[in-house]
């Protein structure tokens, strides 16, 4: 895929950056990228960073409809172009808030090894919601059945984990999954897949990892360290 379109998770949803250049071409790249990834992104809230592209209200409206046809919702548009900002505002789309935070996150990520950048998501992920991120993912809220988190690194759920989590999705066997109540539909770490037992005890914080080629979950105990 062309480098014109970049997708990253931020707190409010997914930040999609479109590079400078010819808009019709960039728009085409954007839509084909969304189409390619629509199964991953389904149900996500999008914030589009179009840089300097000037987009009029008609084009913006069409774009929003096309995005919603993909099962996504356009939530905000960031741009340096006053025309784009006006069209976005006219349609009731957010045009700020995130920009500063997105930069902050980028800076915070410096100094971490490549791919280890983390995102924090603070809401309930309902059925159909999906977070896909190359680094670690922390969710403050519940992960309901039918929702999923696919992460290159670790996944921490401060809440009830009842959906699907794939940690170490790029093959990291050392990835872990922690949750206050670990009751996933299915849990994957790297290439291992686990289906937890139906019978459950009282919910307690647990951590899951791969040991001897199997996904195991252990209660969290104070002072515990995971290699």
């Amino acid at each position: 895929m062309a480098e014109t379109v970049q997708i990253k998770g931020i707190r409010e949803g997914l930040l999609i950056s479109v590079a400078e250049g010819d808009w019709p071409a960039a728009e085409k790249d954007l839509l084909s990228e969304l189409d390619r990834q629509k199964d991953f992104l389904h149900g996500a809230k999008l914030i589009l960073d179009v840089n300097g592209h000037g987009i009029n209200a008609a084009t913006m409206g069409r774009l929003r409809d096309q995005i919603s046809d993909q099962g996504l919702s356009l939530w905000g548009v960031l741009s340096r172009s006053p025309l784009t900002e006006r069209s976005a505002q006219a349609m009731g789309l957010a045009t700020r808030i995130h920009q500063a935070e997105a930069r902050e996150e980028e800076q915070a990520a410096e100094g971490l090894p490549a791919g280890a950048e983390a995102v924090l998501v603070r809401r309930t992920l309902r059925s159909g919601a999906s977070i896909v991120h190359a680094g670690h993912v922390t969710l403050i809220g519940d992960l309901n059945p039918g929702a999923e988190i696919i992460a290159g690194g670790d996944v921490v759920v401060w809440g009830r984990l009842r959906g699907l989590v794939h940690a170490g999705a790029a093959g990291d066997e050392g990835a872990v999954v922690c949750a206050l109540d670990l009751a996933p539909t299915q849990l994957r770490i790297a290439s291992h897949i686990a289906i937890p037992p139906q019978e459950r005890e009282e919910p307690s914080p647990e951590i899951a990892f791969v040991r001897d080629g199997q996904v195991v979950a252990e209660p969290w105990v104070p002072g515990m360290t995971i290699k």
């Binding site: 149900g43 809230k45 919702s73 309902r126 059925s127 159909g128 309901n144 039918g146």
Partner: peptide, 9 residues
């Protein structure tokens, strides 16, 4: 649950 998510969006 899915619908509630969409309504929120």
């Amino acid at each position: 649950d899915r619908i509630i998510g969409l309504v929120e969006a």
